[in-house]
Write a protein that binds this DNA or RNA. Structure first.
Lengths: 137, 137
DNA sequence: TTCTCTGCAAATCGTTTGCATATAC
DNA sequence: GTATATGCAAACGATTTGCAGAGAA
């Protein structure tokens, strides 16, 4: 049984081939793909898959916490199967999203809770700039 | 001359009543409003203002750096006239966005640049949780 | 068998665009 | 006077929804 399938079972989500495939794709990439990109990849194995299914699936996965949704720009959401908190970088030229390795998300949640009165559940840090390929210096 | 008008002149942006009003609104609020909310407020003084003008204006302001765009959820962008880096909290129940006071944005830009090879221009940290009114504990 | 998921197409909604008119400088 | 901004309506594109048929348990 595939890794993804086991996670779905453990989470109590009904297993379907499309769901396994989507989770498998997200688990095996570091590219933080958006829905369109996931859709195109699923399509290679399941040519009749619909965009709506991909939308419903990533929404379900994000809601149950097995993936996280990253809000990068207003036009597209990106998804990440690495759910432990970690910062990201986004290239404002080519749109790429990558993990920042070796930089623990600074844990200021308690401080932020005290300062705001919120009950805080998660933190997300995004760095914006130009990637190696898009830098001009 | 109003505060907003002076900033527009200094930035080299042509001054119009709508632009002054929009910048004035953003300068005088801590609510990090979205376009729809700004539009409704401008409409009180300029009933014939159009949504398109508000969109064009906040895009211009963000591009020239006199305001910043916050990516909170996939559905709406929010705008902030406080442009120096500072973290935000978002209530995942009511959607409110607030500043986190007294918590300097931890400056890991150099580290992130080294770890990723990016030339980083800005950093944004968002905490997600439930605000005072939406907490249930 | 029963309940849920999938795929399709249409609907939605935030945002953008083209263009004629009005306005800032 | 000239270049640019406004307001309108139509276009766009990502996402959501409703529903009939298919598939998982």
């Amino acid at each position: 049984m595939r890794h993804a399938e086991r996670i779905l079972k453990e989470t109590g989500i009904k297993v379907t081939p499309q769901r396994s495939e989507i989770l498998e794709i997200l688990t095996n990439t570091k590219s933080h793909p958006g829905v369109e990109s996931i859709y195109l990849q699923v399509k290679e194995k399941f040519p009749s898959v619909s965009l709506a299914t991909v939308y419903k699936t990533v929404e379900l996965f994000a809601r149950t916490g097995i993936i996280q949704e990253l809000c990068v720009t207003r036009d597209v959401s990106r998804y990440d199967a690495r759910v432990e908190p970690h910062p990201h970088v986004n290239c404002i030229n080519c749109g790429k999203v990558e993990d920042v390795e070796g930089l623990p998300q600074d844990n200021n949640i308690e401080h932020a809770e005290r300062a705001t009165g919120y009950r805080i559940l998660k933190e997300e840090t995004m760095y914006f700039g130009h990637c190696k390929d898009c830098r001009e210096d």
